[in-house]
């Protein structure tokens, strides 16, 4: 449905996007992952027709967007990263406006507005001004505004930034419902757990380039580790601990953040036994220990050497 062919975009001497290519099939949910400044929002802006790429092509069903009045844009629904609402208008007035921007009017506009309010659970607040809403409600309304014209491709640019867990869950339930209806979703985030929950496929970008494009399972299969052992230490390890620990059999990586030691394990049994034994023999007390399955965060760490939130 959507194809990106080697798109590039620079701002002055800064190359924001350095030749990104990927495709999304109809009905697929694709996660576009990367740290802040990786080029996600620039890529999304080029897909939505907000900015023109310096080179390369964005095609929707095989056709490039032909200017900012191209009716093809009506097949896209954009949920911007920043709240795109008029705070001094009511929820209904906001939705009526955004519906009208796509030519909806009369009964069709009223019906679409009512459905979008219902879909996001805001029907009973329809007449209230947006400035009286909680952050989570605003995020839900922000999503509703992109759905009025029933787009085929919905672009969600970090739609859960700054929302409470309850609202995040409500948004996710909505997105899963859209997915069930066969909508194509492009979801940008730097929350790995969100991408794992929602996406069929993941494209990871860093410094304006695609560094991985696969399913969640396919990405984790690439990892040299399967599990991560997290140990909360009561006293710090001595001297050149990192090199010694990493050299033990079954251990792939080690990392100490504050008092938490993260040990990447190729095999859970031998690796964890070796790590725990090494720490015990050196008199390092362990306050708490647990293991985690390797996830997309681990994938990003393995691919770039950095965590997503730190990057």
């Amino acid at each position: 449905m959507l194809e990106l062919h080697n798109i590039r975009k620079s701002y002055g001497t800064q190359q924001a996007v350095k030749g990104i290519s990927f495709a999304i099939r109809a009905g697929e949910t694709l996660g576009l992952l990367g740290p802040n400044g990786a080029g996600k929002t620039t890529t999304v802006s080029m897909i939505a027709g907000l900015i023109a790429p310096d080179s390369g092509e964005v095609k929707l069903d095989g056709r490039s967007l032909g200017g900012d009045t191209d009716p093809l844009k009506a097949r896209i629904g954009l949920v911007p990263q920043d709240l795109a609402l008029f705070e001094d208008l009511s929820a209904r007035d906001n939705l009526s406006l955004f519906g009208a921007l796509y030519g909806l009017q009369g009964a069709a506009l009223n019906g679409a507005t009512a459905e979008a309010l219902s879909f996001t659970g805001l029907t009973d607040r329809a007449k209230d001004k947006v400035k009286t809403f909680s952050g989570g409600m605003k995020r839900r309304l922000n999503l509703a505004a992109a759905l009025l014209h029933d787009p085929d491709l919905i672009i969600l640019d970090e739609p859960t930034v700054g929302v409470d867990p309850q609202s995040r869950n409500a948004i996710f339930e909505g997105l899963e419902a859209l997915k069930a209806r066969g909508k194509t979703l492009l979801y940008t985030t730097h929350y790995m757990e969100e991408a794992e929950r929602l996406c069929d496929r993941i494209v990871i970008v860093d410094h304006g380039e695609v560094i991985a494009d696969d399913t969640v399972a396919g990405l984790t299969r690439r990892l040299p580790l399967r599990n991560v052992l997290r140990l909360e230490l009561e006293n710090p390890p001595p001297g050149a601990w990192a090199e010694e620990l990493a050299a033990l059999p079954g251990i792939v990586s080690v990392r100490l953040e504050a008092a938490v030691l993260s040990v990447g394990l190729a095999e859970l049994g031998p690796g964890s036994a070796a790590a725990l034994g090494w720490l015990t023999t050196r008199g390092i007390a362990i306050a708490h220990a647990h293991t985690e399955r390797a996830d997309l965060e681990t994938v990003f760490l393995a691919l770039t050497g950095r965590t997503l939130r730190d990057a």
Partner: peptide, 17 residues
């Protein structure tokens, strides 16, 4: 400077509009 601008521009209204 807000997301609202992006949403307006994402619609097939055009800059003239």
């Amino acid at each position: 400077r807000s997301g609202t601008w992006q949403r307006l521009r994402a619609a097939p209204l055009g800059r003239r509009g």
